[in-house]
Simulated assay, not measured.
Amino acid sequence: MTNGGIRMASLAAAFCLAVPAEAGGGSQVLVDGFDGPGFSESGGLYYKENFEQSAGIVEFQKEVVRNGGGALKLSVKPLCPASKTSCSERAEIWEKTDLRVPYDEGVWYGFAVKFGDPIPDDDHRYLIAQWKREIDAGADGDFSPFLALRLRQGKLFATVETNYVSPTVQAASAGGCASGTPVWFRPETNQMRALVATDAAWLPEDGDLYGACTDAISVTDHGNKLPAPNSGWIDFVVFTKPGPDGSGHVELFANGKPIVTVKGRIGHADPGLGKNQYFKFGPYRAAHTTDWTMYYDDFRRSPNCADVLHDGPCPAD
């Protein structure tokens, strides 16, 4: 028992995408419904212990569930001292190291999430899930997730990150992109972050950081917005295949509906980066003064779409 909780290692047929129903043959199928007192052996998940994670509380509870007899309740509380400006507060669940997927392979992930009350509505850095590349010991730089699901001012959005590419298209006068994808250039860190999906409440001013445009990342919008954070359980299905050379591919579904297809430069190729990608989920934020709670259920991972996308047909070959 720690910090008041338990920490334990334990589309319609007309819609077709050029994504194989099977991809990335090297990954193992993982499933955890969080119905027991700890992480299941079949899920390959664990809670990583470090200073920032000590802000977290993990509860295997049965009051707020989507399926089965239980779900994870993950909370963070204030932790970071005012003098530590780069400190974050996390309650993230990780894939075990020996079960991670090679960086150049595609893999399907699924998980359900529900925002606890109150839902944060301030202008702050909040993440609920992120996909990253391993960083070898001694590597120079701090690398952002190549894909992340985020919250800002109570609105849900998704971003894709890659190495910095000099702009070749200009922002439209109204603040959007006449062509290309909205992007936040960060040449000082050799990175840039693209805004690829938002919920229906998102306003132009919410994306003020993404004031430039890039053609290095393309987004196909399938006509569905991300669900609102207050809409109850949201079941995400994601296909991830990083490709910093321009071969990257992401598919994002929510509640069985296709949201976006993202292609192009996805992920990082700096010296000292590792050979695998990995997934983390749970509340993660910059230091704050309040408590924040999220619920998670129905985690699954597979090289096969049909193992993960349960609320709609998989994309055709």
Results as ranks from 00 to 15, higher is better:
residue 130 Q to C: 01
residue 54 S to M: 06
residue 78 P to M: 04
residue 151 L to W: 10
residue 76 V to A: 00
residue 75 S to Q: 14
residue 125 R to Q: 15
residue 51 F to L: 13
residue 42 S to E: 15
residue 78 P to H: 07
residue 151 L to G: 02
residue 57 I to A: 06
residue 156 L to S: 00
residue 83 S to W: 00
residue 66 R to C: 08
residue 83 S to Q: 04
residue 55 A to S: 15
residue 121 D to H: 09
residue 31 V to Y: 02
residue 65 V to G: 04
residue 145 P to L: 08
residue 90 R to G: 00
residue 63 E to S: 12
residue 97 T to E: 14
residue 141 G to M: 11
residue 157 F to M: 02
residue 122 D to T: 05
residue 86 S to Y: 15
residue 29 V to W: 03
residue 123 D to F: 07
residue 109 Y to H: 11
residue 45 L to K: 04
residue 60 F to M: 13
residue 35 D to N: 13
residue 137 A to T: 15
residue 78 P to S: 01
residue 104 D to R: 11
residue 103 Y to F: 01
residue 71 A to N: 11
residue 56 G to Q: 04
residue 58 V to E: 11
residue 33 G to M: 09
residue 148 A to I: 02
residue 68 G to P: 10
residue 122 D to C: 03
residue 68 G to N: 10
residue 158 A to W: 02
residue 144 S to M: 13
residue 110 G to K: 08
residue 92 E to I: 07
residue 59 E to P: 09
residue 116 G to K: 07
residue 76 V to S: 06
residue 75 S to W: 05
residue 29 V to P: 02
residue 157 F to D: 08
residue 149 L to G: 01
residue 115 F to P: 06
residue 82 A to F: 10
residue 127 L to R: 13
residue 159 T to F: 07
residue 51 F to Y: 15
residue 53 Q to S: 15
residue 79 L to N: 11
residue 116 G to L: 05
residue 126 Y to V: 00
residue 110 G to M: 05
residue 121 D to W: 06
residue 86 S to P: 09
residue 70 G to A: 12
residue 32 D to Y: 07
residue 119 I to A: 02
residue 100 R to M: 07
residue 47 Y to T: 15
residue 158 A to Q: 03
residue 91 A to C: 00
residue 101 V to F: 09
residue 47 Y to H: 12
residue 53 Q to I: 07
